[in-house]
Amino acid sequence: MLWARRRQPDDMIYGVALAHERFSPNDLLRQATEAEQAGFDLVCCSDHLAPWWEPGDPAPAHCANPWVWLGAAGQVTSRVSLGPAVTSISHRYNPVVVAQQVATMEAMYPGRAFLGAGSGEAMNEVPAGMDWPSPAEQLARTEEALTIIRRLLDGETVTFEGRWFRTVGARLYEVPDRRPPIFLSAFGEQAAEIAGRHADGVWTLADPSSAPAVIAGYRRSCEREGREPGEIVLQGITAVDDTDDAAMDGAKEWKAILVKDHYRDDIHDPATIQRNGRSDVSDTKFKAMGLFSSDPKDHVRKIKALRELGATAIVLMNVSGTNPQGTLRTYGESVLPALRGET
């Protein structure tokens, strides 16, 4: 079983994603402990160099190093699976270092580590010196890096001469007994096919308009490779507050994550990114894509609908700027028990 908390092969996994862009690392450590107490099965975190907005416009901004934070999160929790959602493997992180980082997490917290990987965004890679590539090059870089990471985690000594990455006798000297599972972020079918070839599952947006094609592409790729499909992780956004409007209003800075151009094109200025979110994403669209409600039953209903898309795991980013702890408590008291049939 890939997740630490799965009890039966068909159990649905519920996770929470914590936002380095919005909260300080110490705030997020408190959220991690509260998420475990609430009964979430996994805790993951965003991996950004830059936030989706300028500090103070419209919200506070942070962006601590996720790998340092994950090591600390393992100390303040005891059972949840832990990993990034997701780490870019196209430029900012060398794949050898990524493999070493996740292997170290697994050595420290056996059975709990995983790697969520992706091709990144210009907002995080261009400031680190990358000339932002075409989507085709992004995918090619991702596949090369994923090949190296998987082989290293399998205990191989890797000499690799690719177009984008090169290794010479690279190996890990701290190889955990359990290879941490790798999940690849995919917004389209081509990335989903790479996941089918190299990863242990696919991680995509909880968007009913796009998720079915991604899932189908992943499953086709697994079939061609003679592999059993792994995890299908759908990630959405959630907030709970005193009223439905308050829940959404306290999270509007996150509209920018729904602009597809931010993942494909060289758009790396946070102020521009936030303006695009405001102009391109209506309140109606934002509300439809998120779980914003004061009523736990609304959250349960929407999550059950997401399960029907074929998910084996559902991860919800806590985007509540005004009530993050209350959101986690509501899930622990009412939402997760109802989803698991405990109430």
Rank of each mutant, 00 (worst) to 15 (best):
Val240Lys: 05
Asp207Met: 05
Ala72Asn: 00
Gln274Gly: 05
Ser46Thr: 15
Val68Asp: 00
Ala4His: 15
Ala117Arg: 09
Arg112Lys: 05
Tyr109Leu: 13
Arg301Pro: 02
Ser293Glu: 03
His62Pro: 08
Glu231Ile: 07
Gln274Leu: 10
Trp67Asp: 00
Arg5Ser: 14
Asp131Glu: 11
Thr204Glu: 11
Met12Leu: 11
Asp265Phe: 10
Ser88Ala: 15
Ala128Phe: 09
Thr157Arg: 12
Ile314Gln: 01
Ser185Ala: 15
Val16Trp: 02
Asn318Leu: 02
Arg30Asp: 09
Thr322Lys: 14
Arg275Met: 08
Gly15Ile: 02
Phe23Leu: 01
Gly111Arg: 09
His299Gly: 01
Lys285Tyr: 13
Asp280Glu: 12
Glu137Asp: 14
Val43Lys: 01
Arg79Ala: 09
Met105Thr: 06
Ala251Gln: 03
Leu29Tyr: 03
Glu125Lys: 08
Asp298Gly: 08
Trp69Arg: 00
Thr77Asp: 02
Leu29Asn: 07
Gly120Asp: 06
Val158Trp: 03
Ala206Gly: 03
Cys44Lys: 06
Leu258Lys: 06
Ser210Asp: 03
Glu137Ile: 14
Ala305Arg: 12
Arg307Ala: 03
Ala19Pro: 03
Tyr331Ala: 04
Ala85Phe: 08
Gln8Pro: 03
Pro84Thr: 12
Leu172His: 00
Gln37Asn: 10
Pro296Arg: 04
Asn94Thr: 08
Ala191Lys: 05
Val168Thr: 13
